[in-house]
């Protein structure tokens, strides 16, 4: 994880605004301001000024604490809009 943060830092990206997902397994979002929609097929959140949609099947919120959202389920994709 430190290596990942270092790479992102060198690339000029902000690690606090990152999205990490494992297709078919899970998805981890940071700096989530609010959850807009939470259904087994779509979970839509507002992170910063963007809306991020996690799409898949059987999605559920496993952990949500202090802006960190961990989603389990068959994650098929993440859409940033």
């Amino acid at each position: 994880m430190r290596l990942l943060e270092q790479i992102l830092k060198e690339a000029g990206a902000d690690a606090l605004k990152s999205v990490t997902f494992v297709p078919g397994e899970c998805c981890y979002l940071k700096s989530v301001k609010s959850v807009n929609v939470c259904t087994p097929s779509v979970i839509s959140v507002t992170a910063g000024k963007r809306e991020i949609k996690v799409e898949g099947e059987g999605l559920r919120v496993d952990r949500y604490f202090e802006g960190d959202l961990f989603v389990r389920g068959d994650v098929k994709g993440v859409r940033v809009g």
Binding site: V35, N36, V37, C38, R63
Partner: peptide, 19 residues
């Protein structure tokens, strides 16, 4: 919101327009 969402999500209840 974290507690509520976890409970609802665990029961497979779709929620919309959360605030």
């Amino acid at each position: 919101s974290e507690t509520a969402l976890k409970k609802l999500s665990g029961a497979d209840i779709a929620v919309y327009g959360c605030k």
